[in-house]
Simulated scan of single mutants.
Amino acid sequence: MNQPHIPASISCATGRRRFLGGIGVSSLAALLPAEAARASTQATAPVKTSARIVIAGGGAAGLTAANKLATQLTGATIIMVDRRKEHYYQPGFTLVAAGIKPQDYTVSQTSSYVPNGVEWLNEAVVELDPVGNKVVTDSGKRLAYDFLIVATGLELNYGAIEGMDAALIGQNGLGSIYHGPQAAADTWKALSTFADQGGIGLFGRPSGEMKCAGAPLKYTFISDDHLRRRGNRGKAELIYMAHAKSLFSVPIVAEKVRMLYQDRGVKVRHEHVLQSIDLGRKVPATRPPTVWSSRTTISSTWCRRCERRRWCATAPCLGPRVSGRPMAGWRWTAARCVTSASPMYLASVTSRACPRARPLPA
Rank of each mutant, 00 (worst) to 15 (best):
D224W: 13
Y158V: 04
A213P: 14
A70L: 02
I6W: 02
S294N: 05
G319W: 02
W120D: 09
V283W: 07
G280C: 08
C212Y: 10
T77F: 00
K282M: 14
P206H: 03
I200N: 03
Q109K: 08
V136T: 12
A254E: 06
G163P: 10
W302P: 00
W311Y: 15
G140F: 01
E155I: 01
D165P: 04
M241N: 10
S176K: 06
C212K: 13
A341N: 15
Q197D: 13
P91Y: 03
A30E: 15
L128C: 01
A56F: 02
M210A: 11
K282W: 07
W188Q: 09
E162M: 00
R264S: 01
A8K: 08
M259C: 08
T106R: 01
S192F: 06
L128F: 01
E127L: 06
A60Q: 02
C354H: 08
L32G: 12
A313Q: 14
V125D: 11
S26D: 12
N133T: 10
A313E: 14
T44M: 04
R308A: 14
I53G: 08
A65I: 05
C337M: 14
R358P: 04
A185W: 06
F19G: 09
K211L: 11
Q182V: 15
R356E: 13
L148K: 10
T193C: 06
P115W: 04
A190Y: 02
I239P: 06
P359W: 09
A334F: 07
T64I: 07
A36N: 10
R38Q: 05
C312K: 00
S246C: 05
A166L: 10
I78N: 10
K141Q: 14
D196T: 05
S176V: 03
V135F: 02
G265K: 09
N116R: 13
V126L: 04
A66P: 11
A51K: 04
D224F: 01
A285L: 03
A347L: 08
F248D: 11
K101Y: 02
A166V: 13
T71Q: 14
A97S: 15
N67C: 08
T314L: 15
L168V: 03
H179D: 14
E123K: 12
T193L: 12
K256V: 10
L260P: 00
D165W: 00
R18K: 03
G234D: 11
L346D: 15
D129V: 00
T77M: 00
W332R: 11
A65Q: 05
V266M: 03
T94C: 03
K68N: 15
Y158N: 07
A61H: 13
G117C: 05
A341H: 12
A151M: 08
T350K: 11
R304T: 12
S192Q: 08
M241C: 14
T44Y: 00
C354W: 11
L28I: 13
H270S: 09
L121P: 02
